[in-house]
Amino acid sequence: MSCADCGNIAKEAREIVAEVGSEPEKVIPLLQEIQNRHGYLSQELVEAVAEEIKLPVSRLYGVATFYSQFRFEPIGKNLIKVCKGTACHVAGAEKVYSIISEKLGIEEGETTDDQLFTLESVACLGCCSLAPVVMINDSIYGKLNPAKMGKILKEYADGK
């Protein structure tokens, strides 16, 4: 990493802290802001933010690793969240998950080599009436079956 990068990272950390706040109770919102910007928590930025708010890095990582929302690896262009809540489980979420996993060749938590898709699961999106449900980026798709899921994936792969 060049020093220009270090400078940029420190600058971004200051920006984030100025926006969110520097009190210890802001640790979660700070981490959320880093992830909103980059899709994951990069070590450099977490360290820079910790320095900015004068808390040990371990405190930030302690929090980050506790909550399932936080990721430590970059994500692909499209983030797929398969709901594995009770209603979706009973309605066949596993089949929907399998078809995605099979078609993309990745498991939960992984990203495709072409950086197009990251696959995750969530415990309920609150749209149980449409089970099984999958969220891709900000859109929710419901009443899925493997065939329908396959079509949707293709749309995204084709650059939706």
Binding site: G85, T86, A87, C124, C127, C128, S129
Partner: peptide
Amino acid sequence: DEGDPGAFMDR
């Protein structure tokens, strides 16, 4: 926090 999977009253 509505954590129970399969519930959406609070939402």
